[in-house]
Design a protein around this nucleic acid. Structure first.
Length: 511
RNA sequence: CGGGCUGUGGCUCAGCCUGGUAGAGCGCUUCGUUCGGGACGAAGAGGUCGUGGGUUCGAAUCCCGCCAGCCCGACCA
């Protein structure tokens, strides 16, 4: 009878991880499958991914990259070529050891399939493709004239994670991985930074998620990389999430794979390589950054549908006129653009109780809901609900005004989400000086049932990887990055070792 | 991989201790009444109780093995 306080239970402050799972379910984004750790991405969730792909793919092409595709299976020996890399991924690899099945009739009449045909050399299902792409690059590169080689692939990869969570950490996930080879270290570093910048812009402008861009410490680096650049977002439980990484691989992988070329001085040289990736994890980031206790809130730019029109049909005799009016409005809106693309509009004509249908779209996070009923047709008005202003927000406006201003309204919704996320991050980012302050910041007040606490701590740091281990063991905090901006540069003293430090780093708990 | 817990209609779960052969709420279908609104009533569909074995006249319930999932650790995009 009476509607619950909020559509999602528990609410964020009650149990954030459970809230997250319920939001994913309520919005019909994805579900756990029968395959351990692997999810089924449902149309609404996949629609988000398609938009992410479309945006990023355009940026990659603009910056000179081409798409290609490499095998899912990697010869085991390839993974052994780069020692650090091999160790980094060793504990999470699925291994293919057989290539055929034999049907065996059981006494009870059933059939069992027995793997036979053992492979001489097992294959590993790619956890990432540096090694096999490196082998291809070695074949493709002979001269400095073949460089730079700028390749991206859209693919699935598999990492046998211990504790999977929808979107955030699944055994199989979708991503793009860029792989490039260059003549000089400078060029490769420039590429690494360029793609890092692309990711930062993507998160901010497209997903409305502000990020701190920075460099990883040695402890947090990609296995085999000389440098890893990251973009770190803060989500609503104040934890950090790594939303994209760009790696400067130096000559490690060229050495391992033999990516050699004849240089301008007729000398054999090793190429300098990079790799960079963004995964379906960004969908989890998006949810945790923006969703509220009534479900997902999608920034318009990434929403599969930006506007859903809901015909209000109280009486059968006006139903057809209302639907016609909705369809006409949809056509008008679709002929307009937002952020350079035709506006995506859906008319939900399903014969469902109006309230239930409305709530479905609230939980899915569609940016604008537009209701049109018989009275609106008479008055030439529409009821507009902006999801970013809350589930209940609803405003009547003349239809012509809405059509005139729809692009602005979408822009405002997009900007509002970014502002809100930025405000949250600023509120929970603190410059701290002492170990005691650090400890207080990262210690929950209620140890039994830890409340949402902490955030980003900007600390002076001059410690070692072992010191990072200690802090990680005691507080579950890690250095998320050494941020790039000038605002982090200042003289001070490391809070842990007391040694002099010339810039602050970002400490946080993370996903 | 260690420690704890759990597997029962689509979903959430009760029943298990004290064995007698399956229940609720939500969801779904149909009909009616409502309806600018996450409505109400009635009727109905839907379950080899994770799996294999054992004990028993009889097992969702007791015992053993296996599998899967969840939570807490270690690992991670």
């Amino acid at each position: 009878m009476s509607a619950p306080q909020s559509a999602i239970s528990p609410r964020r402050e009650e149990d954030f991880p459970e809230w997250y799972q319920q939001v994913v379910r309520a919005a019909d984004l994805a579900e756990n499958s029968e395959v351990r750790g692997c999810m089924v991405i449902k149309p609404w969730g996949y629609g988000i991914w398609e938009n992410i792909q479309r945006y990023l793919d355009a940026r990659f092409k603009e910056t000179g990259h081409s798409n290609a595709y490499f095998p899912l299976l990697i010869p085991l020996s390839y993974l052994e070529k780069e020692a650090q890399h091999a160790e980094g991924f060793a504990t999470e690899c699925a291994v293919v050891t057989h290539h055929r099945l034999e049907a065996q009739k059981q006494p009870d009449g059933t059939t069992k399939m027995i793997p036979t045909g053992e492979l001489a050399e097992p294959y590993v299902i790619r956890p990432t493709s540096e090694t096999i792409i490196g082998a291809a690059f070695a074949r493709w590169v002979e001269s400095y004239r073949d460089l730079p080689l700028l390749i991206n692939q859209w693919a699935n990869v598999m990492r046998w994670e211990m504790r999977p969570r929808l979107f955030l950490r699944t055994a199989e996930f979708l991503w793009q991985e860029g792989h490039t080879a260059h003549e000089t270290a400078e060029e490769a570093m420039e590429e690494t930074k360029l793609m890092h910048k692309v990711y930062e812009t993507f998160l901010r402008d497209f997903l409305a998620v502000p990020v701190i861009a920075g460099e990883k410490t040695a402890r947090e680096r990609f296995p085999g990389a000389l440098n890893t650049f990251t973009v770190e977002a803060m989500v609503q439980d104040r934890k950090a999430i790594q939303a994209g990484t760009s790696h400067f691989l130096g000559q490690n992988f060229s050495k391992a794979a033999g990516i050699e070329f004849l240089g301008r001085e007729n000398k054999k040289q090793l190429a300098w390589t990079t790799s960079w990736g963004v995964s379906t994890r960004t969908i989890g980031t998006l949810i945790m950054a923006h969703a509220d206790d009534d479900g997902v809130i999608l920034p318009p730019r990434v929403a599969p549908q930006q506007i859903v029109i809901l015909p209000v049909t109280p009486k059968p005799d006006t139903r057809e006129a209302v639907i016609d009016s909705c369809e006409a409005l949809a056509r008008t809106l679709r002929s307009q653009t937002y952020a350079g693309e035709p506006i995506r509009v859906h008319v939900d004509k399903r014969d469902l109780p109006g309230g239930a249908r409305n709530w479905e779209w609230i939980k899915k996070g569609v940016p604008l809901r537009v209701e049109i009923g018989p009275r609106d047709i008479e008055n030439r008005t529409v009821m507009v609900g902006r999801r970013d202003l809350g589930a209940k927000a609803k405003e009547a406006m003349p239809k012509e005004d809405f059509i005139q201003n729809v692009e602005d309204i979408l822009s405002q919704a997009q900007a509002n989400l970014l502002d809100r996320a930025l405000t949250l991050r600023n509120e929970h980012t603190k410059k701290l000086e002492t170990f005691d302050e650090f400890k207080a910041f990262f210690t929950p007040k209620n140890a039994e049932k830890p409340e949402i606490h902490g955030g980003f701590a900007l600390m002076h740091w001059a410690g070692t990887s072992e010191d990072e281990d200690k802090l990680s063991a005691e507080f579950k905090t890690t250095i998320r990055c050494i941020p790039l901006g000038d605002e982090y540069v200042e003289e001070g003293k490391c809070f842990f070792t007391g040694k002099p430090s010339s810039r602050r780093v970002v400490f946080a708990k993370s996903y």
